[in-house]
Design a protein around this nucleic acid. Sequence first.
DNA 1: CTCCGGATTGACT
DNA 2: GTCAATCCGGAGG
Length: 216
Amino acid sequence: MSATPAPAPLPRHFYDRPTLEVARDLLGCHLIVDDGEERLIGRITETEAYLGFMDTACHSSNGRTPRTEVMFGPPGHAYVYIIYGIYDMLNLVTEAVGEPCAVLIRAIEPVQGEETMIARRNGKRGRDMLNGPGKMTRAMAITKTAHNRLDLCSGEGLWIEPGTPVSDDDIILGPRIGIDYAEPEHRDAPWRLRIATPQLRRQLEKKARQGNRAEE
DNA sequence: CTCCGGATTGACT
DNA sequence: GTCAATCCGGAGG
């Protein structure tokens, strides 16, 4: 039996950059959770950038509160909050102290520990297992209680490692999800980033055709 | 496949 | 009191 590899988390300066760049470079990276019993690994396939004060979709644009405090601190920490009473959302804090920005991790694909993920998702497997931010945290057992404010560069509990790089041609940009309350310029901004799979390309082409039809 | 309503509770007005 | 960076199941096409 082989020993578990030592954690090799991405360093803090990875997160200390413009948030859109971080969101882009996180695609293809490995998200790792280690509870001391088992190490789970997922490859990041979808992210959203939240750009701080100026972004009316970003929680921190309403000011500094106990909940958003961690976003105002140093980069490379986890911001985990609960939405709709029941779902934990994982964000990675970016940019310098005083710039309250973050990247939401929306979807992964399994790399290691898939059977545990399936069990935590109540037997759900395949396409619908990890394709949403609440599904992903449920499968990985990421919670506000256990992981909010955690240092992602310590290699303890939760961190990111390099994975398989993604070329610019394989990234699809689109508007972010679930932020209808934001100002139009932020609501419609293409700050949702996804790795393009053949299935996703087909799906979007189909949608575009329907849209064109409605125009006439 | 798409559309629609209910679940459930912390955070903030 | 209202709302939220969501998910799921059921109804209809």
